[in-house]
Amino acid sequence: MSYIIQNPGIVWGLLLEHIIITGSSLLIAIAIAFPFGVLVADKPRLATPVLGFLGILYTIPSIALMILLLPIVGLGRQAIIVTLVVYAQVILVRNIIAGLRAVDPVILEAAHGMGMNSWQRLWQIQLPQALPVILAGVRIAAIVDIAIATIGAKFGAGGLGELLFQGIAQAGRYDKIWAGALSVAALALIVNWSLLALERAFDTTRRIRRSERRQLAIKKG
């Protein structure tokens, strides 16, 4: 705790690094996962092997994957971003597919009958309905990536993990360990709660219940 107070500049700098690494990886991952997920969602024969392969990647511990990628990407920030993108992919693709599939086929058929083409159906019906699940995927991917980025400090990527590793390298610098652990935990929790709030804001069932409650309150009030 004390370390943060005494060295706000350093901590802030590392925090920013951490956010940049995680943020850019997420954006890249979303940019890839989104079209990919949409494409694969309604082709079950493609989806199963794809999800299977991604599942295998996800099971491999992040540190193992980072080591396996070393010969290809080397050390440093870029290397970590690749790993972060890979892990984020798994979660995002899985959630996008699940979210799109969960839309009631009856509704889609009605839309088809009304004359919507598949593009319109996608944008006007499937995506809005799938949004909470997709946002959940973004949230989980963000949390996972924050965690992996912490480990990434060892691989030269920078970020808040630096504090942790320095804390043990420099014997007895428990204050650094505390600073690192607390800041990364705080980052993770804040990101989680904000994205959760976003998720809930888009959840239609909750929205209906909320407006019902509000109307009831207005009537009573």
Binding site: I143, I146, A147, T150, I151, G161, L164, G167, I168, I177, W178, G180, A181, V184, A185, A188, L189, N192
Partner: peptide, 10 residues
């Protein structure tokens, strides 16, 4: 939600 490395090091 807290990164596992943080818990480990704590």
């Amino acid at each position: 939600v807290v990164p596992s490395l943080a818990i480990l090091f704590l």
